[in-house]
């Protein structure tokens, strides 16, 4: 039915119009940018959510290597024990566990590489703390108590790191929103320009149609059909190109062996959003064409 509607006879020779020849290209570029911006915003949001989810309810206690100690291993073991004891006595803490040297080395390996360098560095001890779900722990008081009880112990609730990440993700989302807004504005301007030029070129035909009784909506529908066909063609091309680009970027990201790089993945609902731009662009083009035609025709007798 849509195919029939698209290919149906038109009274206005819009197909060969120089004014609208560039429209599919403009829409393709707009949709391409929109899909990339949208995907970027969704991935940024998902990464923050994932990080936030994995860090909520966990704390890390870091114990610095004491300076000037003759027997370093014994001193560190003593500090770790005291810290663990204090933590386990604190209400609201479910589990506190010191990370082994191997675990700490594994955490640093992506940055420093494995082997001798890590072993030779005076690395601080790390204690992974899990809170009882829903428990309210006074982190400030706990940090003070830790610092007082164990020299060199510092509590990290990941809040600052997470806050920075959320700010980054929000900035990415705002940039994506701005890009979408600009892209929409450009698409609207392109359609308005094409429609106005077409109307100027075919003014004679439009006048004849009016004189034989055509209503504005009859004429507008021909422009709408034309805008629909062109923008759908351009939109789907831009969308396909954007998917190829995203696929390439995902492949490149997956082949990177970086611990903090987010694994690019989208939920099915987000895929639906990614599917939207070509159709949204088509809808905007059709609506814009309709409004532009009515606007121009409204000034004719």
């Amino acid at each position: 039915m849509i195919r029939g509607w698209l290919s149906s006879r038109t009274d206005l020779p819009l197909k060969g119009d120089a004014a609208s020849r560039f429209l599919p290209w403009v829409v393709a570029v707009m949709v391409y940018l929109a899909v990339l911006a949208l995907a970027g915003a969704l991935l940024a949001r998902d990464s923050v959510l994932r990080w936030s989810r994995s860090l909520t309810g966990t704390l890390t206690v870091q114990i610095a290597v004491p300076a000037g100690e003759r027997n370093l291993d014994v001193a560190m073991a003593d500090r770790i024990d005291r810290t663990l004891e204090l933590l386990r006595r604190t209400p609201g803490i479910d589990r506190a566990q010191a990370l082994s040297a191997d675990q700490i080395s594994a955490l640093l390996e992506p940055w420093l590489g494995g082997g001798a360098i890590v072993d030779e560095l005076p690395l601080p001890a790390l204690i992974d703390v899990a809170l009882v779900p829903g428990a309210r722990v006074d982190l400030k008081a706990l940090a003070e108590r830790l610092a007082a009880a164990v020299p060199g112990a510092a509590l990290d609730d990941h809040g600052k790191w997470l806050k920075d990440l959320i700010r980054l993700a929000l900035a990415a989302q705002a940039a994506a929103g701005l890009i979408l807004l600009l892209v929409t504005g450009c698409a609207v301007a392109a359609v308005v320009f094409a429609v106005r030029t077409s109307l100027a070129i075919h003014r004679d035909v439009v006048e004849i149609l009016h004189l034989v009784g055509a209503r504005d909506r009859y004429i507008a529908s021909q422009f709408q059909r034309h805008a629909l066909a062109l923008s759908l063609k351009g939109g789907l091309s831009g969308w396909l190109l954007a998917l190829i680009t995203l696929g390439g970027a995902a492949w490149a990201l997956l082949s990177l062996d970086a611990a903090l790089m987010p694994r690019p993945s989208l939920a099915w609902l987000e895929w639906l959003l990614i599917l939207l731009p070509p159709f949204a662009a088509t809808g905007i083009a059709v609506l814009t064409a309709r409004l532009a035609v009515h606007n121009v025709l409204g000034r004719m007798i």
């Binding site: 006879r9 009274d11 020779p13 004679d204 035909v205 004849i208 149609l209 004189l211 034989v212 009784g213 055509a214 009859y218």
Partner: peptide
């Protein structure tokens, strides 16, 4: 005459009926 140049004789004459 004011015929629409890219439409055939039939389509030009049919215009008022199709519009209606």
């Amino acid at each position: 005459f004011r015929l629409i140049p890219h439409l055939s004789a039939l389509d030009n004459v049919a215009l008022p009926l199709r519009i209606a």
